[in-house]
């Protein structure tokens, strides 16, 4: 399976690019899947779309977090961060850019490709010079740089599914196919390793682990509170009521059994102060 993630801005055609690639792959006999990131839909806002291509049915239904290929329709997005997340050594980065691919800001073990899709789109009258629609030129470049789809399948898909200016879009795809420039990874890498997804049965791939694997403990909730608990340990009887009733797991007991408030997580609810039998906990105003 090849997993491709598209990054663009609203209005550039990133979602349509992903769908067109899937249609072309289908015409090529593959089992494709394409869907956009579910989020804010606003012109100019960063847009993400996902495309999976395989020789058998794709059962995964999740966002692509470890793409084999990242396609960037707008070079400014490279600065935004997150675009290259999960791209492995030997993975391919394709950017709509006038720059030499060797100068693209990417980790040294990533293969890079660039194509001036903006110029191609403008030359073929696609979109406006302010907001050229670069997706078909980029897809042509992708076909050349990755071999993920054949150019003739891409042209057939454009004919069938692009409502406006199919001839110009086909020409843009062909131009992109011819104009793409490639730079190898700067450090030698082996072929991308076969994904170690747990295969329970043929055709059913599962992610390696839970989709959310970061502990919420990495999130500080201290800014929620206006009061903080202060414990008079001299009068503490170590009854651990404060620990027992804390909804936020923000009180731990030290080796001697005394409570220690995790101030980075305490939300200042005040339950511990109310429940402390000898009344040794005071809520004190922050700041």
């Amino acid at each position: 399976m090849i997993e491709i993630r598209f990054h663009g801005r609203g209005g550039q055609g990133a979602v349509v690019a992903s769908e067109l690639l899937a249609q072309a792959a289908f015409l090529d006999g593959k089992h494709p899947q394409s869907f956009p990131f579910f989020g804010v839909e606003r012109r100019g806002a960063p847009v993400t779309a996902f495309c999976r291509l395989d020789d058998r049915a794709v059962r995964l239904r999740t966002s692509i977090t470890r793409p084999d290929i990242v396609v960037v329709l707008e070079p400014g997005l490279l600065r935004a961060g997150g675009v290259m997340d999960g791209l492995p050594p030997g993975g391919l980065l394709l950017v709509n850019s006038r720059d030499d691919p060797a100068r693209l800001p990417a980790p040294p073990e990533v293969r890079r490709a660039s194509v001036d899709a903006t110029a191609i789109a403008v030359a073929h009258g696609l979109g406006t010079p302010m907001l050229p629609i670069v997706n078909t030129a980029v897809l042509g470049a992708l076909a050349a740089a990755s071999g993920a789809v054949r150019l003739d399948a891409l042209e057939r898909a454009i004919d069938r599914f692009v409502p406006a200016r199919p001839a110009q879009n086909r020409a843009a795809a062909r131009d992109g196919f011819g104009a793409v420039r490639l730079a190898p990874a700067e450090v030698a890498v082996r072929a991308p390793p076969v994904r170690a997804g747990r295969t329970l049965r043929a055709g059913l791939e599962l992610p390696d682990g839970p989709l959310a694997v970061v502990s919420s403990a990495t999130i500080a909730t201290s800014a929620w509170r206006t009061m903080r608990p202060e414990i008079d340990l001299g009068r503490c009887t170590r009854c651990n009521f404060c620990w027992k009733f804390c909804p936020d797991d923000a009180i731990e007991l030290n080796a001697e059994g005394y409570p220690v408030v995790r101030l980075e997580h305490c939300k200042g609810c005040g339950i511990c102060a109310v429940e402390c039998p000898p009344g040794t906990i005071a809520m004190v105003a922050e700041g």
């Binding site: 502990s215 919420s216 403990a217 990495t218 999130i219 500080a220 909730t221 929620w224 509170r225 909804p247 936020d248 797991d249 923000a250 995790r262 997580h265 939300k267 200042g268 609810c269 005040g270 339950i271």
Partner: peptide
């Protein structure tokens, strides 16, 4: 249950 979750104070 890890701390840092998004429940309201006193939940």
């Amino acid at each position: 249950v890890h701390p840092g979750h998004a429940a309201c104070p006193g939940c």
